[in-house]
C-alpha cells in the first residue's frame, strides 16, 4: 500500500522547535552577540569585533584548560566504557538479583552533582574523610588539596563512581534484548566466551554503546559541578577544566565578552568531536550491515 504524505504532521514538530528556540537558539544568539562586544553592565555595549576571539585563541590559559579537559574525557571514556560493559555482562539476567542490581546501579545516578562533589570532598579529606584517613594510615601521603596527581585521581574516581552505572544500564538494556536463540546457536557451534561477546553481544550493544559514549563524552567535556565542589579547580589550576575557567571568567571577573567568545569556541569543539564520534560509530555499524 502506498504511503499517504500529509505535511500537517510538521505542525507536531512545532512544540519542540519552540522549546529548543527558547532554551538553546535564543541564548546562543545572545552569546554570539556578546562575543563581539564589550560591556560594563547597564545594558551598554561597545563593538569589539573579533578581539575576544583572538585573545582567547592566543591565551595559554585556554589551551591548558582545553588539554586538561580532553585528557580527562579520554581517561573517563577509557575506564567507564570497558568497566560498564564488564559489569553489564556479569549482571544477572533472571531472578531477584535483577531488580537488586538495577536499583544499586541506578543509585549513583539519582544523586545531584553538587551532592556527589560534597560526598567525595568529605570522603577524601585527610582529617575526617574515610578515604583520606585510610590511605594515610596505610602510609600513602594522600592529600587532594595539595597534590595535583591526587586531585586528578580523586576527580576521575568520583566520575567513574557517579557515571559508570549509566554505561552499565545502557549496555544491560542492549544485552537483555538478545534472544536466547543466538546463545543456543553459539553453544551448538562450540563458540568460546570471547566469540560470543565479539560476534553476538558486542554488535547488539553497539547502538546503546554509541549513546553511552556520546553522553559520557559530552558530559565529561562539560563537567563543572563535581570538580568545582571537590577541588575548586586546584591545587593551582591543575583541575581547572574549560567550564570552570569559563565561569571564573564570566562571573568571577565579569569579562562577558571574552567569556562569550570562549563559550562559542567550546561549543564548536563539542559539536565537532560529537559529530566525529557519531559518524565513526554509525558508519562502522552501517559497514557491518
Amino acid at each position: 500500500m502506498d504511503k499517504t504524505w500529509n505535511n500537517k504532521a510538521w505542525f507536531l514538530v512545532l512544540p519542540v522547535l519552540l522549546l529548543v528556540a527558547f532554551s538553546a537558539v535564543i541564548p546562543l544568539m545572545t552569546v554570539v552577540n556578546y562575543s563581539v562586544q564589550d560591556t560594563f553592565g547597564n545594558n551598554q555595549f561597545f563593538w569589539a569585533g573579533t578581539d575576544w576571539f583572538v585573545e582567547i585563541l592566543t591565551s595559554p590559559r585556554f589551551w591548558d584548560a582545553l588539554w586538561r579537559n580532553l585528557i580527562f574525557s579520554a581517561v573517563i571514556l577509557a575506564i567507564e566504557v570497558p568497566l560498564g560493559i564488564l559489569i553489564a555482562l556479569n549482571m544477572p539476567k533472571h531472578g531477584l538479583g535483577v531488580p537488586v542490581c538495577l536499583v544499586l546501579m541506578a543509585l549513583p545516578l539519582l544523586i545531584p552533582w553538587n551532592v556527589v562533589g560534597t560526598i567525595w570532598q568529605v570522603f577524601g579529606r585527610v582529617d575526617i574523610g574515610l578515604l583520606g584517613y585510610f590511605l594515610n594510615s596505610l602510609g600513602i601521603s594522600y592529600n587532594y588539596t595539595q597534590n595535583p596527581t591526587h586531585a586528578w585521581a580523586t576527580v576521575i574516581v568520583m566520575d567513574v563512581w557517579h557515571w559508570t552505572s549509566l554505561v552499565v544500564l545502557l549496555c544491560y538494556a542492549g544485552l537483555v534484548s538478545i534472544p536466547d536463540a543466538y546463545y543456543q546457536a553459539a553453544r551448538i557451534d562450540g563458540a568460546s566466551r570471547w566469540s560470543v561477546f565479539r560476534y553476538i553481544q558486542l554488535p547488539k550493544m553497539k547502538r546503546v554503546l554509541l549513546i553511552a559514549v556520546l553522553l559520557r563524552f559530552m558530559d565529561s567535556f562539560m563537567i563543572y559541578t563535581e570538580p568545582f565542589v571537590v577541588t575548586g579547580g586546584g591545587p593551582g589550576n591543575s583541575t581547572t577544566f574549560l567550564s570552570i575557567d569559563l565561569v571564573k571568567m564570566a562571573i568571577g571577573q565579569f569579562d562577558l565578552g571574552p567569556a562569550a567568545a570562549m563559550s562559542i569556541i567550546y561549543f564548536l569543539i563539542i559539536l565537532l568531536l560529537s559529530w566525529v564520534f557519531y559518524t565513526v560509530m554509525t558508519q562502522s555499524d552501517a559497514e557491518q550491515k
Binding site: M29, V32, N33, Y34, V36, Q37, F45
Partner: peptide, 15 residues
Amino acid sequence: FSWMAWTLPTAIFFI
C-alpha cells in the same frame, strides 16, 4: 530585545 545586544554584523550572520 536590547538585552540580546544585537549588532548589524551578527544579525547578517544569523540571517
